[in-house]
Design a protein around this nucleic acid. Structure first.
Lengths: 130, 130
DNA sequence: TTATTTGCAAATTGTTTGCAACGGT
DNA sequence: ACCGTTGCAAACAATTTGCAAATAA
């Protein structure tokens, strides 16, 4: 499934999709990416966009963030958090140091093995507070 | 919309749905609640279950937690966090004190007003690690 | 009585999949 | 030439909605 995997091909579709998100900080949805890519490859299908996004995620070139019922894609791989505006649904990157304590499981019980965590902040963004 | 609102009615459907989740700690989905309620009211429709769950959420009697593409309902209202098993998708309540610092916005920029936050831990649960 | 709620079915939204044609390597 | 990838359309899953009949107050 990964493009680093044997027999993966470099298609124009994959390349254009990557170029369209690789520096994007707005956390677009598949649909928004589809709209942008269609300007460059008008006949591309939404299915192809989804398949290539999955591929980029499998290759660890993108992260996925669920918000509401849709997935948002994020090319920023370093550990970071998100602030989500409850008014406009925009997602912002937050470099907020989450306490190491979360990892070192001061958990109620040692029954769980924690492998990752995610902190999301909700509120109103600058754009919406004016 | 709220049942505390003027003209709200106490229907058998609402009462049964509430009884079925009010002490439940398993974070069921609407479908799972539907299955349980159907044993008591066989002719209830899924739409009615959804509408009553919305009502309970609007009335602050339930919290919603998104996981994957579905909403999970949680009658526990006190601030708490969740541990989600990546193997079986079960959701557990975690009483983990999140640092107050998260609220008092030591944020990169004062452009945001944070009104809430949510921390989710991912890993493997006891049931799945054996 | 009468406005809210229900059951049912159809509509919506976001995403995935089957398949024949296409195109990298 | 081989087999991964595409476009298209249909399938899906979770949730919402329109509407006439039912029912709580």
């Amino acid at each position: 499934m990964s493009s680093t995997r044997k027999n993966a091909r470099n298609t124009r579709q994959l390349e254009v999709i990557w170029n369209v998100i690789k520096d994007d900080k707005s956390h677009p949805t598949a649909d928004q990416i589809y709209d942008r890519v269609r300007k460059l490859i008008p006949k591309i299908s939404l299915g192809t966009v989804y398949r290539n996004l999955q591929k980029l995620v499998a290759d660890d070139r993108l992260q996925v963030l669920m918000h509401g019922r849709s997935q948002h894609f994020d090319p920023l791989l370093e550990r970071h958090q998100h602030f989500i505006c409850e008014n406009c649904d925009r997602v912002y990157d937050i470099f907020f140091e989450t306490p190491g304590a979360i990892d070192s499981a001061t958990l109620p019980d040692q029954v769980f093995k924690v492998s990752s965590h995610q902190l999301a902040l909700y509120g109103t963004c600058k754009n919406c507070s004016s």
